[in-house]
Write a protein that binds this DNA or RNA. Structure first.
Ligand SMILES: [Zn+2]
Ligand SMILES: [Zn+2]
Ligand SMILES: [Zn+2]
Ligand SMILES: [Zn+2]
Lengths: 160, 160
DNA sequence: GTCCGGACTGTTATATTATAACATATCGAC
DNA sequence: GTCGATATGTTATAATATAACAGTCCGGAC
């Protein structure tokens, strides 16, 4: 649960994510088809949220016969099964770092490098739940997206 | 700081919002021109977030010569001066209930009636700030949007 | 007063994101 | 093997947002 370092074995991130996805789909009785798997892999190609049309271009370059619904359907599947999150602020998608474990999904988004880090959202969710309960509002879903500068970029580019 | 009741003097909401906007613009040395004022009034025509193209249609019906940039510029002005908020989940805009007072903007969005209520976000902002600080992330802006069912709709339609 | 520069608005075109609708294919249970 | 459900292919279009440039207004300098 930390910001991805500039240097790390990202291949391991991807492999771990795909393995976790396979396991999670098995557990849920869902079919991680070839294209869904490939879209997930593309979403994981970095730690930056990726737009649907960027995914579409990648698929096209690889020779898939791909139109927008191809990608949106795959993303919809991945969202429904908790394998990716949608970042509303960016209209983009990012891999979930802990599928299977129920959580709301809260993100730190670096304005400099574009990286997204999934936050441990328990305390935030609790604060929101309390505030909402005070107004008699029953919560079903939360969107928590925080823009700022990640530690790596802050060190590189000290405030002028 | 509560959910808008189904029955209330909404004309008073609108008047209060426009008065507050006049005052805030004077304070900031900004010009609340006719079209900006009218867009703000339209945003406030309900407590539900309104899309840019819905505003555009309203303006057109009233005889304004309006194209998308007309509305987006007005909205941009209102956002920059803290008079409206953008709801990323809905691609829509809602009036700010306390312009001039610095706050992040956190919203409860009722899935049934569509109403939005601005939450007192201090505890939530604090929880996020602490979580972010723990990762060395410096926060500049937060998006907090909570979907659920408001008290009014919950009472009307008890869970089946 | 008038000239200037910045801020505002009008207008056309286009980019970006997302979905509707319907045809075809594939899978797995029986 | 047949059938129904699920998944994919394909075309078209909806919904949201911005780029670019021309014209206009407005307040202050002179
Ligand atoms: Zn990685
Ligand atoms: Zn997650
Ligand atoms: Zn009201
Ligand atoms: Zn506000």
């Amino acid at each position: 649960m930390s910001f991805p370092l500039a240097q790390h074995d990202h291949g391991a991130c991807i492999r771990a994510a795909l393995d976790a996805a396979e396991a999670e789909c098995r557990r849920q009785g869902a079919r991680l088809t070839l294209i869904r798997r490939r879209v997930l892999e593309l979403v994981w190609s970095s730690h930056q949220p990726v737009g649907a049309y960027a995914l579409l271009e990648s698929l096209a370059r690889e020779g898939w016969s791909a139109a927008p619904p191809t990608v949106y359907r795959a993303l919809d599947f991945l969202l429904r099964h908790g394998l990716v999150h949608r970042i509303a602020l960016l209209n983009a998608f990012v891999g979930c770092t802990h599928p299977g474990q129920p959580h709301a999904g809260a993100f730190l988004l670096c304005k400099v490098c574009g990286a997204a880090a999934e936050l441990d959202d328990a305390p935030v969710v609790k604060a929101i739940a309390e505030a909402a309960a005070g107004l008699g509002f029953s919560v079903s879903r939360q969107t928590i997206e925080v823009e700022g500068v990640c530690p790596g970029c802050r060190d590189k580019d000290p405030a002028p």
